[in-house]
């Protein structure tokens, strides 16, 4: 019996077939839960639709022109940017500071690391409710502590000027632990020999070592933290929902809360979709710029 000869082409074909078979489950999941909704949102942005009725009215770019001409949208966009500016640098620096502080600490290392990481694990809505208590005007512990120093009670969440700051404080508390873990991983990946070389070469002083050695070698972690926290920040919703409902007077209304409100409270699904598309473009642009500014993924 002679064995059937199979051409090179056959094997090439069959191996790429196997690759496709392996990829299929992941592609199916991504298609259904990521690609399809994305295009659906893009599509819905051109319609007026209440989210329930069978009929959808094609309105072209009306949703987009509408939002760009409304002053409300621009103030919401500004709120999102302000929220990002308040939370991202602070949680970046705090995460880095915690990581540097706990990097070589032997005492209570794991206890402290866990303590700072707990906020990340807690549900945002639950944590938001706890912070509402903490920020409470009459009985909150923060005003209670301030009163010990004879400071008058502050209306943390009820004041237009302070509500955004208060929500940001809670968000920083919530995300700093995550950044700390990323930075710790980055720090532990720096070989000890670089610091020993410094020591032998007489380059002493923690600031010098941080500036010339640690910070440059920590760059992959820094880029990751910067990019992810910006994305998280623009995507924030739960803490606003739990703490302020966008108030007072819309002072904490940010994009995702606006999308939810328009889509699921006012049933303006088309308009909400248009805002979602704007958010997507915004996040992609900011992420792209961040990558460019930090010199891309590799270039060490």
């Amino acid at each position: 019996m002679t064995r059937k000869k199979r051409s090179v082409k056959y094997y090439k074909h069959s191996s790429s077939l196997a690759a496709w078979m392996f990829l299929l489950p992941a592609m199916a999941v991504i298609s259904v839960f990521v690609v399809y909704p994305m295009f659906k949102v893009l599509y819905l942005g051109f319609f007026k639709w209440n989210g329930l009725s069978a009929s959808m009215e094609y309105t072209g770019l009306a949703n987009y022109t509408g939002l760009f001409y409304s002053s409300g949208f621009w103030s919401i966009l500004w709120n999102s940017v302000l929220f990002t500016l308040l939370t991202v640098p602070a949680s970046f620096v705090l995460g880095l500071a915690l990581a540097l502080g706990l990097w070589k600490t032997a005492i209570l290392k794991n206890v402290l690391r866990s303590a700072f990481f707990v906020p990340v694990v807690v549900s945002t809505v639950g944590a938001g409710i706890v912070w509402v208590w903490l920020f409470n005007y009459n009985s909150g512990i923060i005003n209670g502590i301030l009163s010990l120093f004879s400071v008058k009670p502050v209306n943390w969440l009820g004041s237009e000027k302070l509500a955004m700051l208060s929500v940001s404080v809670m968000t920083i508390w919530k995300t700093a632990g995550y950044n700390m873990v990323i930075f710790l991983a980055g720090l532990h990946s720096i070989p000890e020999v670089y610091y020993e070389t410094c020591l032998v070469d007489g380059v002493t002083g923690n600031w010098k070592k941080f500036y010339y050695i640690t910070w440059p070698l920590l760059r992959p972690a820094s880029v990751f933290v910067a990019v992810t926290t910006v994305i998280f920040s623009f995507r924030s919703f739960e803490q606003i929902y739990a703490m302020t409902r966008g108030g007072p007077v819309g002072s904490t209304k940010i994009l995702v809360y606006h999308i939810w409100e328009q889509g699921f409270r006012f049933y303006r699904m088309g308009y909400a979709s248009a805002v979602s598309v704007v958010l997507l473009v915004l996040v992609l642009t900011v992420t792209f710029v961040q990558f460019k500014l930090s010199g891309g993924r590799d270039g060490a």
Binding site: P191, V193, Y194, E196, T197, L199, V200, D201, G202, V203, T204, Y212, I213, P216, L217, R219, A300
Partner: peptide, 30 residues
């Protein structure tokens, strides 16, 4: 005494060259 007071230089097994600096900057660092 601290290493620097001893007037020693050391070459480590894995060299310990700073990956983010050029050869020139590596040599100039100390």
């Amino acid at each position: 005494s601290a290493p620097v007071e001893r007037g020693v230089a050391m070459v480590f097994q894995n060299y310990g060259l700073y990956p983010h600096m050029t050869v020139y900057d590596n040599m100039a660092f100390a």
